[in-house]
């Protein structure tokens, strides 16, 4: 999953996940370019503020059990009354589902305290 970072957060060895383009959509740096310290200065000179890099340490996925997810899906039906039609809308649904799962887990946790 690509990760959006500011040029300030650029570290040597990071790899570009998405090509860097200028205002006219010309490619300045291609995908998979291994970044070096010198790129920082160049990117700033080009007026680029953010870049997408490959996410080396994939965000640790929280482990939820299926029962929690099913419960969250059921609860979410009252807030999310439409069906997603493309991957962006699926991303919105998944973000909402993740928040709902956290609430379900919180309730569980409190029940056992």
């Amino acid at each position: 999953m690509p990760k959006l970072i500011t040029i300030r957060e650029l570290k040597e060895g990071m790899e570009l996940a998405v090509p860097v383009r200028n205002k006219f959509s010309q490619v300045l740096l291609t995908e998979n370019t291994k970044l070096e310290e010198s790129h920082r200065k160049i990117l700033l000179l080009w007026g680029i503020q953010n870049i997408y890099v490959k996410n080396a340490e994939e965000e640790k996925e929280l482990k939820f059990d299926n029962a929690d997810i099913e419960k969250a899906k059921e609860q979410l039906k009252t807030r999310f009354k439409w069906n997603f039609r493309n991957s962006f809308e699926e991303e919105i649904y998944n973000a909402a589902l993740m928040e709902q799962v956290k609430k379900v887990r919180m309730i569980h946790k409190n029940e056992f305290v």
């Binding site: 999953m1 962006f88 919105i92």
Partner: peptide, 28 residues
């Protein structure tokens, strides 16, 4: 608002966002 409204489908065509965009910016 409690309900998450359905987006206007035309916005995806207007914006032409890169793939996985929303997930990629979530943490930031």
């Amino acid at each position: 608002d409690i309900i998450i409204p359905e987006p206007n489908f035309d916005v995806w065509e207007i914006l032409q966002l890169p793939k996985d965009f929303l997930t990629s910016i979530k943490k930031k």
